[in-house]
Design a protein around this nucleic acid. Structure first.
Length: 488
RNA sequence: AGGGGCGUGGCGCAGUCCGGUUAGCGCACUUGGUUUGGGACCAAGGGGUCGUAGGUUCGAAUCCUAUCGCCCCUACCA
């Protein structure tokens, strides 16, 4: 199996597509813009899901499920929200097919037109708030902390596997609170949770910040984002958490009686991360040999490859090592496939991003050792057979740490400050990456910079030092530097 | 929306200009054997309505007409 992939230096976006294909993460499907997530890709998603789900539960959230289809009228209730999504909605107009009277096949039965057309959810705020109206009467019903794992559809023109697809999988949290303060705290709690997940599980460092008015979620008062840097220097919005104020409560008339027996509108948040994270994972760590996965999200953490020699008995030893490692909670695969030679398997598991490979041959048996190769650095060394399990466990932790360290160093090397537009454009053209620059807070300046440079305002960082200055575009007063980059 | 390109086994392609035996090649697949410490080799096999529909012709992957689909560039975009 020739598994050649394009070098990153040659064509980054082709490299990305090659990785997705050759590592068996996803396939194109018969439907334009919709991908098939293959078992290995889905296994990564399942690991992400499990971890995030545990984190949501630990912070008091519960799961529920709301319908795929939304009455068209719901979408028009919150003005900004409609405007944000109207251009990319799939619409269900009929409910029956019939035989084509002109010959073979089926056609839409024109007599089966729906009275009210249905929208395939691009996000679920509207149907959820329409439901919450019935669930909430009193402050005693609050807070309502609900998450759902679901698919959504946004009819995108240009799609790329995981990064932007017409249909994608995600989780969307929708919470209702009795006070503004509590809702803002909730949106920030999740913002922190996402950053924690990105850094400590994906080993993908992120900048936490707020979106500008222009980049904000349609219908939100504030949008908090985590922004990650990909290897080509472009920014990826990896997760967002929104403080929705009372916008949806007002649109759907969701009120509660407070302790003083007075009627008030409910305060809301919503937040989500999607299968896009898999794209981020690929573009943060992987190399020209294939996928590189952080141990915490790798479906297979250790692969054991026997190097067969005639008359040698390796099978038993391989299984023994597998068992030892599994007892330590690791996920392990032994590849006994006789059709493939060891060298082929080495390359194959590198392509799949398996963090640690153990090679075991007659030579090792004699010397009471195994050969251990780590995927992140490609280093190989011999480990003593005694106490192997603990050593491998430590190695996996070291790999997890190293990936984060490496990604942080890369981001730091590719983050620059600009004090003038000339400098800004020069950095963008010559180095790329993140640019920190002063901005006067107006949409006009933001759009002008975008128009001129194709870089967008990714976020107004929450952390780090804040110093006043002058906007690089207008020269007006600026309270802090903000993050610009070309983005996915 | 404008411009360009492509539809031939699972994948990548040749053949089309200039119609003519049984539509070919590489990879993948199946079986057997020799191999196995960085992508093995030999042998034998299986698999194709040439996107679809019509037309010209003794004869069409090849020529003509229509139609469908996909990709790329430009434009647009939570």
């Amino acid at each position: 199996m020739a598994k050649e992939i394009t070098d990153r230096s040659e064509d980054y976006s082709q490299w990305y597509l090659d990785i997705v294909k050759k590592a068996g993460l996803a396939d194109n499907s018969a439907v334009r813009g919709c991908m098939v997530i293959k078992p290995y890709g889905f296994a990564i998603w399942e690991k992400m899901q499990r971890q995030l789900d545990d984190m949501f539960k630990a912070t008091g959230h519960v799961n529920a499920y709301f319908p795929l289809l939304i009455p068209k009228s719901f979408l028009s209730k919150e003005a900004e929200h409609v405007e944000g999504f109207a251009k990319e909605c799939a619409v269900v107009t009929h409910h029956r097919l019939m035989d084509d009277p002109d010959g073979s096949g089926v056609i839409v039965d024109p007599s089966a037109k729906l009275e009210e057309e249905l929208i395939i959810r691009p996000t679920s705020e509207t149907i959820i708030w329409n439901t919450y109206r019935d669930w909430i009467q009193s402050y005693r019903d609050l807070p309502l902390l609900i998450n759902q794992w679901a698919n959504v559809m946004r009819w995108e023109m240009r799609t790329r596997p995981f990064l932007r697809t017409a249909e994608f999988l995600w989780q969307e949290g929708h919470t209702a609170h009795s006070t503004k303060k509590e809702a803002i705290e909730e949106s920030r709690l999740i913002h922190d949770l996402y950053a924690d997940f990105a850094e400590n599980h994906m080993a993908m460092p992120v900048i936490k910040g707020a979106k500008s008015a222009n980049e904000r979620f349609a219908g939100a008062v504030d949008t908090y984002t985590i922004e990650a840097m990909m290897q080509d220097g472009k920014a990826l919005q990896a997760g967002t958490s929104h403080f929705l104020g009372q916008n949806f409560a007002k649109a759907f008339d969701v009120k509660f009686l407070n302790e003083g027996n007075k009627e008030e509108f409910v305060w809301a948040t919503s937040w989500g991360v999607s299968t896009r994270l898999i794209g981020g994972l690929i573009m943060t760590h992987s190399d020209d040999e294939g996928l590189v996965l952080p141990p915490k999200l790798a479906p297979i953490q250790v692969v054991i490859i026997p190097i067969p020699k005639p008359n040698s008995v390796l099978k038993e030893e391989c299984n023994k090592i597998k068992q030892e490692l599994e007892e330590l909670g690791l996920s392990v695969k032994v590849d006994f496939d006789k059709k493939k030679r060891p060298g082929f398997k080495f390359a194959e598991y590198e392509m799949l991003g398996v963090p640690v490979r153990i090679g075991l041959g007659a030579r090792d048996l004699e010397n009471n050792q195994v050969e251990v190769a780590r995927r992140d650095t490609k280093e190989k060394s011999n480990y003593n057979r005694e106490g192997l399990g603990q050593q491998i466990k430590q190695l996996l932790e070291e790999i997890q740490d190293n990936l984060l360290r490496r990604a942080k160093a890369f981001r730091s090397d590719n983050t620059h400050e600009a004090t003038t537009m000339e400098e800004f454009e020069e950095i963008l053209d010559q180095k790329g990456g993140f640019i920190m620059a002063h901005w006067d807070g107006t949409t006009a300046s933001e759009l002008a910079i975008k128009e001129k440079t194709k870089a967008t305002l990714r976020c107004i960082p929450i952390e780090g030092e804040k110093s006043e200055g002058k906007c690089i575009y207008s020269g007006e007063k600026s309270l802090q530097k903000v993050l610009f980059a070309r983005a996915y």
